[in-house]
Structures are given as C-alpha cells and as structure tokens.
Design a protein around this nucleic acid. Structure first.
Lengths: 132, 132
DNA sequence: ATCGGTGCAAAGGTTTTGCAGGCGG
DNA sequence: CCGCCTGCAAAACCTTTGCACCGAT
C-alpha cells in the first residue's frame, strides 16, 4: 500500500476545484492557482487531478470537443454542454438514478461505480444568435 | 448551401462503422478499412467521421481515458466502460429517457438534442483478476 | 470545368512521463 | 533519511489543418 503525502500543491489544487462551479479543465485549474502558487507546473496539476479523480474526491467529466473537465461537487447531478459555444452547466433537478447502476450490475456482471450523463444542445444565448 | 459529394472513402468509412459493434476509435476505423482502401489517410477518416457524427448518421462517444469512439447504431442505448481494461459494451435493456431532454429544455431554455450516458465500472473478467 | 474531397505531412492541442532535486513523514 | 512529489522539458498521444492534386458532378 502506498502512502499518500500531503503537499501544498495538492491542497491548493483540490481547494481550487472545490471552490468553483465552473468545471475547470486542467489548464484552467493551473491558471486559477498561479496567483497563490506561481511556480506550480501544469504536470503537477494533471498528476494531482488524476489522483483526486481516481480516489473519487473529485469527478472527471469527458465531453465531446473539449478537454476533460473536473468537478468538485460530488452531489449527484447531470451536465449540459452547449455544442455551439461550449458553455457547460450543472443540472440538479433530475435525480441520479442509482438503481440503474444496480440494474446493470445484475444484467451484465460488471461492478458499476457510477454513470455520467451529459446533455448536448444549444444554450439560450446561442439560440438567440441563430438569426433568420 | 454546400453540396455534399459521394466518395468511395466516405462510403467505406460509414460502412465500417455501421458494420461493427466494437465502437471503434478513428484510428481503429482507419485500420479496419486499409485492406479495402490501402491509400486512405487518417485525416480523411477523421474528416468523414466528424461529418457523419455532425449530421447524426453515427454517434460520437466521449469516454474518460480513451480517444473518442464512434457508434453506427442509432438505436437508443447506453454504454459501459471497464475502468481496468477499457472494454466497452452496449447496454440496451434500459430505455432512453427522452422525456428527460424535454424536461431539461423546460427548466433551462437549452434546446437539447440528445444525452449520452456512460457507466463506469469493472468488467467480469477484471473482477476475476482481482486476486487476494 | 468546377470545387469539394483526398493524401500527405506538419502543426496544434491535450496529457503523460523521465529525470534530478526537494520536501513530508 | 527514505522515497513520494515536484518542476521542467521532452515526448506521446489525439486531432485538425494547409496545400496541391484528384475526381465527382
């Protein structure tokens, strides 16, 4: 069993992801923490985001036409992506159907940890810009 | 309005994606068609897959820790990804909840075209290999 | 003949990794 | 003081794109 070390970098990165609702990419997390930690490297950001996502402290979200996003909010919720401008939003008002995970386990013999649902569409602003 | 031309490449690429249940990546489609079309370029495969996905003839699926996959089966269904070995399967026995798209449209003013759900877990084979 | 598609190769964008040194336990 | 973590930079990986030519209409 490997021992996990506490470092300033890890704490700052986690705090950045948990302190925003913007679903930042690794690059964006990097920008967010450079005020506080100017010498941090992008590689370290990637390494820590990967670890945090692997142990489930944060969520990693894979989106068509975008680098992976990270979400510090573990409350079950869905995401909506605008295929025009890339805007990316939470959607909390639909329940996370955990029984679906159990159903699939029963049907397939996979052990299911989670599912991720992303809705793709056009946001209100981009709809307005669809002239004619 | 642009006129879309029929080419041999486009036909072969579409046929490859529609003729398999393996959810190939662009690279895999490229390998699949090289027997029939040895001079095709990977760029052309990408270009055609992008077009086909854009007009909805095939589905593009974004998966954590994998290049994008393509699926020629438009029947509503979900996907399951093994986080150990990358195995990627269809799951047809849960209905696609289209009313969820309409519900989110009503709540958010997005126009929703679709949603993609990916289940993440460990496949039966990888479960067996978890010795001790 | 036109002009969109193609092959090729280079570039762009994202993510990982090898290494030497630093720091947490 | 051990060995995991970091910064740095190079590399790997995935995808797009510029260009000249080809071929569908």
């Amino acid at each position: 069993m490997i021992k996990e070390r506490q470092t300033k970098q890890k704490a700052v990165i986690l705090s950045a992801v948990q302190g925003t609702k913007t679903h930042p990419t690794a690059e964006q997390v990097y920008e967010m923490i450079r005020d506080e930690m100017p010498n941090v490297s992008l590689g370290t950001v990637y390494r820590n985001l990967n670890r945090l996502a692997e142990i489930g402290t944060i969520r990693r979200i894979s989106v068509i036409n975008s680098p992976d996003k990270f979400d510090g909010d573990l409350t079950p919720h869905h995401h909506i992506s605008c295929t025009q401008c890339g805007k990316f939003c939470d959607f909390f008002d639909a329940e996370y159907n955990e029984s679906l995970d159990r159903f699939i386990e029963a049907k397939t013999s996979f052990r299911i940890a989670k599912h991720e649902t992303v809705f793709y569409g056009v946001c209100p602003e981009c709809k307005c810009n669809e002239l004619n």
